[in-house]
Design a binder for these strands. Structure first.
Lengths: 183, 183
DNA sequence: CTTTCTTAGTAGCGACTCGCTATTACATAA
DNA sequence: TTATGTAATAGCGAGTCGCTACTAAGAAAG
């Protein structure tokens, strides 16, 4: 009888996901390619290898490998071989890729039209939900550096105690593969 | 600076959608097939034709036609030709299909573990969001009969004033293609 | 030093989705 | 009767998906 049915919420998330996906058949890309492109644009330099993209996208490395090759062929991202580890590759979003990402998004617009109070409670609920679901699945959280246990604020930027690397102000707001939510 | 970024909310919905999808490669079905099967189980008898499924799934009739054929071949749904309109087909979930749908779902479990207050505000936010996004897109709402402007309560069941059809108590809780939210 | 793990990335396979453009089979209105 | 519109499907090409199998390179243990 409860109208707060877990079923209804699941349904809504699923439906919204599908509507967003349908909206993302544009500019010659498909939803998966948009997801990979947008992740790469928001991830820091330690988190842009195929393995990490596939972790984020909840897909296998093989699948993601193909997606990234396709994006590279379209000139939206570029391959950058690692200097340290000769097995490893990283990808960077090109100017053309960044331009494409400025396209307005259906759900983002709908979110903007929400009242601030609705927005913050929606966000809180989704945040908790995502944390729970991802933990159950054994997936990483993929938050931004400034909310991570390994992060120390240094001046305007910061420092990652896990990777022993200084971070620029911009980098502290990027997504990291090694992210672990601070208490 | 706002941590209620529309971007963050969009991101969370997208990520949850992907995680749910990854979780739905099971029992020989894929995410799209699960979505169609679960819709058919929850839709009323006026809303189970390929056209209506494709409206709901935000896909073309051609794509959905193939998905439904695949489900039928697996014996999870069965084809029912319409008596009135000889162009039209309807689908019904079989016993085997219904049995499959009882599989526990990752996100549904996560939702259940939410506090009741969190759950209701999450639900409210998603409801509004979905309504806005669907209207922007010109999509139908696909609610259940008992919340529809065309619905009149009659005893334990109801009556649809649009289709001029009586509804059993069960039918008033099913999804309808013609649904229009009552004020 | 070599073996022996382990990890990063990729190819290729079969099944499938997706949007697209016909095409067929009706229904309905002029 | 003849348009006009709608329901469903077939077939096309590009691409995702999980999978297995593979190469190459780093790391660890003998």
């Amino acid at each position: 009888m409860s109208s707060n049915d877990p079923e209804r919420i699941t349904e809504l998330i699923y439906r919204l996901g599908r509507v967003m996906a349908a909206d993302e058949w544009a500019e010659g890309l498909n939803p998966t390619q948009w997801a990979a492109l947008s992740y790469l644009a928001r991830a820091n330099k330690f988190s842009r290898a195929p393995s990490q993209v596939s972790d984020f996208m909840a897909a296998t490395r093989g699948t993601v490998s193909q997606t990234l090759k396709a994006l590279a062929k379209k000139g939206l991202i570029s391959e950058i071989p690692s200097a340290q580890d000769k097995r490893s590759i990283s990808y960077a979003v090109t100017k053309q890729g960044a331009a494409l990402l400025r396209r307005p998004n259906l759900v983002e617009e709908a979110v903007s039209s929400l009242k601030a109070s609705e927005r913050s409670s929606l966000r809180a609920g989704l945040e908790t939900l995502a944390r729970t679901a991802l933990r159950q699945r054994g997936s990483r959280s993929f938050g931004v550096c400034k909310t991570c246990v390994h992060h120390r604020k240094v001046g305007r930027g910061g420092y990652c105690q896990l990777l022993d690397e200084p971070l620029s102000p911009t980098e502290t707001t990027q997504i990291c593969h090694e992210h672990a939510e601070a208490a």
